[in-house]
Design a protein around this nucleic acid. Structure first.
Lengths: 349, 349
DNA sequence: CGGCTCTCAGCAAACGATTGCAGTCATCTT
DNA sequence: AAGATGACTGCAATCGTTTGCTGAGAGCCG
């Protein structure tokens, strides 16, 4: 036996056949080309020797690396780890491995990442980094199978799996309206991200849906889905003298920023202002107050994205040319309460 | 020009030399073997053609994959993403890539992961999954360079980079003692993890350090560093009728579990019981109440671990045979308050 | 001027697997 | 019984780099 890891030729020698035969016997796909008995002998020999194929050598010949690039803005954003788990679990079942790259929302870092991925010969890519119209990704998509997760690009040239944002914000404003809120603000996310733009648009529509007229004065746009931007946005709203009793934030991080801005100004949530977030990030139930928010199926999104990508890699290019949108659900906690006016009325009664 | 990506022979043809010469000219290490002018010509040709070496082919020949395995219990635990970022950033600077595997603390999943890593030919491994005496990892460590992060094994056969747990819990109990607490409980982590055992031991020592005598009645061990176990542990303590005014939890997650248990029993934090956590996980300042905890340098730990591993891979086997322990810092927030007895005294005064 | 060393570049054999092609039997057909 | 068919399996090329060895030419010294 040769030193080090056991290789194809070791198994071949042990089974008394040619390496090529071993190769064929070992692969499901080519098993039928070799005699049943021989195959058994080979399988047994491989088992005894503890043979594991060398993926590097295999890749060199087949041009497949069984590796999927996963591009994120920032792994540190609690939104992503559950998605990544979903992706990894689904990939692992198919023998694939995920390679994670953080782009920090910098186009040049993204470029570098794409480059790395391509030279490392990823078989495909799952990206959560797309801006609404993202040339870079579109280009990359033409070179390898790609699917988007939690993001979308303008023309649906790249399939995406996303949460049902429209439904989510509709549920949020309906919840608020049901509590008697009539002046509802929107601390919106960046409009160059599909999630930001979609939710803003959905907010407008939902407002009208419950018979409220959108007021531009009550909408402020952040430049990123961060606590910082959430706080800043709310501050500018408040400073402009806008009056409202509830707000829906672009996502949970921004909602958290609103919490900060609120305490800084001596306002109470939910007594003075109700806030609802988006994403139901981990520990959202532990915040002060526990955050009412829209739960999106992070893990499931990851799985679906991975499965979709694998399907496309298997040549099933037709697989879901439609975007996959997963249902969301409002989870009510303590950051929303009846509107002050209604509370007053209730007190009077 | 041949189709697809440009390869060594394309560059060779363009520069009018043999592929072997290109290979030598392109590598810093072997550059000196080729004539200066020729090297320039090769470099220029490579540049013009946009040549990028095929890492698969390279790996096959050199047996190095420029890939580092990172084994975590669970990426979803907020403790890890910052570490991973640190690891990835440091690795990227050296041209390495991280491959992340989640073991969910299951030995068999860990085994599978190790296997995958080995067959994928990782050049080294950073593990955060070690139990105190971990045969599996010890064995793996004999086959490839390895460093531990945030964990330690019993006999220091594997170098580790950890936070200064002892100092951390000392600071915690000193803080509590300074607030007048005299009966301090410990909701300890699992003892089969070094972090669990170390912190427990440090807790005992710190208590004595401030002139308090440890009381076994005030110590409960969890079976995992989870909210669930934190809650369960505190419940058993309370049910046993233990009386105390403060507690230090094994980590932040367990502290959060304590929060739950406390409200479930109608107790208030910090009015009835002060709690301090460990790790200063993201958003610890957003909890209710904001959590007093020990901040550990997650990102820096990741970087250091990666750098240490790289050093060892470069043959610098001597590099830090000592563990690297990074300083920690208590950050005081609102989950700790003066002991009730002292508050009473103050009220009287 | 012969022989020596030295520098540089090409040759070819790896690395470990996959795969088109071709050859060897045994079996079947007529 | 001869040829055709079919089922297996071996041969050898190939994927793109790296690297030990060899060879060619230049320069140097005695």
């Amino acid at each position: 036996m040769s030193p080090g890891p056991v290789k194809l030729s070791d198994v071949a020698e042990r089974a008394g056949v040619h390496p090529a035969t071993v190769s064929r016997a070992l692969s499901e796909r080519t098993r039928h080309m070799v005699n049943g008995d021989t195959a058994q002998r080979v399988l047994a020999a491989a088992e005894e020797l503890g043979y594991t194929p060398n993926p590097i050598a295999r890749s060199l010949k087949t041009n497949r690396s069984f590796t999927i690039a996963v591009m994120l803005p920032d792994l540190t954003n609690p939104l992503f780890p559950p998605m990544v788990r979903g992706i990894e679990d689904a990939l692992a079942e198919a023998g694939f491995t995920a390679l994670i790259a953080n782009t920090d929302n910098h186009p040049d870092r993204a470029l570098a990442a794409v480059e790395t991925m391509r030279t490392r010969l990823a078989d495909g890519c799952i990206a959560a980094t797309a801006t609404r119209d993202d040339g870079l990704l579109a280009e990359a998509a033409s070179e390898m199978p790609m699917v988007l997760i939690n993001r979308r690009v303008l023309n649906h040239e790249i399939p995406a799996v996303v949460a049902d944002d429209r439904s989510g914000v509709r549920q949020a404003v309906e919840h608020l309206a049901a509590l008697g809120h009539e002046r509802i603000a929107h601390v919106a996310g960046p409009q160059w991200l599909a999630t930001g733009a979609d939710r803003h648009e959905a907010f407008l529509a939902a407002l009208r849906g419950v018979g409220l007229e959108p007021d531009p004065q009550l909408i402020s746009f952040g430049e990123g889905f961060t606590e910082e931007q959430g706080a800043r946005s709310l501050h500018t709203l408040l400073e402009a003298g806008a009056s409202f009793t509830a707000l829906v934030a672009g996502n949970d991080l921004m909602a958290l920023g609103c919490y900060d801005a609120l305490v800084e100004r001596g306002l109470s949530c939910p007594d003075d202002i109700s806030v609802v977030g988006f994403n139901d990030m981990p520990f959202a139930d532990k915040f002060n107050p526990p955050l009412t928010t829209v739960r999106i199926p992070h893990y499931a999104m990851g799985r679906r994205a991975a499965e979709l990508l694998l399907a496309r890699i298997e040549g099933n290019a037709s697989a879901a040319s439609e975007d996959i949108v997963l249902p969301v659900e409002l989870v009510q906690r303590a950051s929303t309460a009846p509107a002050p006016s209604r509370r007053a009325r209730q007190a009077r009664a």
